[in-house]
Design a protein around this nucleic acid. Structure first.
Lengths: 103, 103
DNA sequence: TATTGTAGTACAGAATTATTGAACTATTGA
DNA sequence: TCAATAGTTCAATAATTCTGTACTACAATA
């Protein structure tokens, strides 16, 4: 059974956040999740159907390990939310500023 | 003779900027250059002496190709400046917000 | 309780990217 | 002209990323 490791606020670092957001697929995923105003399954937040699901899974892992999203298993799905408030607490304005210029 | 290719403002894109800044070495270089309030040679802006000069050269190339710095050859040195105004024109507040949280 | 379908993870090999040392170019100064 | 300095380019190696296959976990249905 997969256990999701979410870093604590203290362990979230700028470099990993930028690294996670430096991929167009992942920034699109994050934007989709924020627009959805709540939880998203991996497939819902996927930017295109072409992408291999193992690759998609990996992108979610990177977002999770960077501390950008929180994932919980609900039935057969993994539902994720952006850890918006926590990120804003540690890096005020960062997410908003970056995502403003995405796409 | 090395010719430095600097992208035009139109060609600068968010993803490449984030990608360039997602490396702790490069973000340190950028911060050093901004603190120096002007041009810096590669060795001046280098974050540590241990790093191989070919690696350092590569980091500068990535910063340059992302549109973050402008490099000109002055005598034996390459002197670089952050393209602060141009970046601010295209992505207002981005650089400042990101660098505020660096280190 | 099997069986089938759905959602996603784990792993291993292929493809891509980063790092480094060595050789090179360009400029300066003795 | 010769040596020193500053950086680039190249090729080899090291490290990452991407993807297909096999797998687990849960749900629904017979």
């Amino acid at each position: 059974m997969a256990k999701f490791l979410h870093p604590s606020l203290d362990d979230i670092c700028l470099t990993e956040i930028l690294s996670a957001l430096s991929d167009p697929v992942r920034i699109r995923i994050l934007k989709t999740m924020l627009d959805a105003q709540g939880c998203c399954s991996c497939t819902q937040a996927a930017p295109c159907p072409k992408i291999a699901k193992s690759t998609l899974s990996n992108h979610f892992r990177i977002l999770r390990e960077a501390g950008l999203i929180k994932t919980t298993k609900v039935g057969v799905e993994n539902r994720s939310v952006v850890r918006e408030q926590e990120i804003n607490q540690k890096f005020p304005g960062l997410l908003k500023t970056i995502l403003k210029f995405a796409d």
